[in-house]
């Protein structure tokens, strides 16, 4: 069966660490950086478990700041 592999690219400078993408992610792929911050002082989102991403783009839809770009590819 074909599987979907996704990749989430976060625009670190725009991210405000609101956590909405983390809540909306169905596969627990995303999380906020526990220590690192961007130059505005926000704990930005990153792919904590990149292998779990299915590229559903739910994170992108709910992101209020448009910092998320999602790619998806079918893997046989």
């Amino acid at each position: 069966m074909a599987k979907l592999k996704g990749y989430v690219e976060v625009n670190i400078g725009r991210c405000k660490g609101c956590n909405l993408c983390v809540v909306e992610c169905p596969t627990d792929t995303l999380d906020l950086q526990p220590r690192e911050v961007n130059d505005r002082g926000y704990h930005y989102a990153y792919m904590k478990n990149p292998d779990d991403c299915i590229g559903c783009a739910n994170c992108g839809f709910v992101c209020p700041d448009g910092c998320i770009t999602v790619y998806r590819k079918k893997v046989l």
Binding site: K5, G6, Y7, E9, N11, P50, G55, A57, G60, F61, G66, C67, I68, T69, V70, Y71, R72, K73, V75
Partner: peptide
């Protein structure tokens, strides 16, 4: 699978408008 195989414009599903 390599990240570079996924990240290319033909696989784009969502981006900032």
């Amino acid at each position: 699978m390599n990240v570079n195989d996924i990240v290319n414009p033909e696989n784009l599903v969502y981006a900032k408008p």
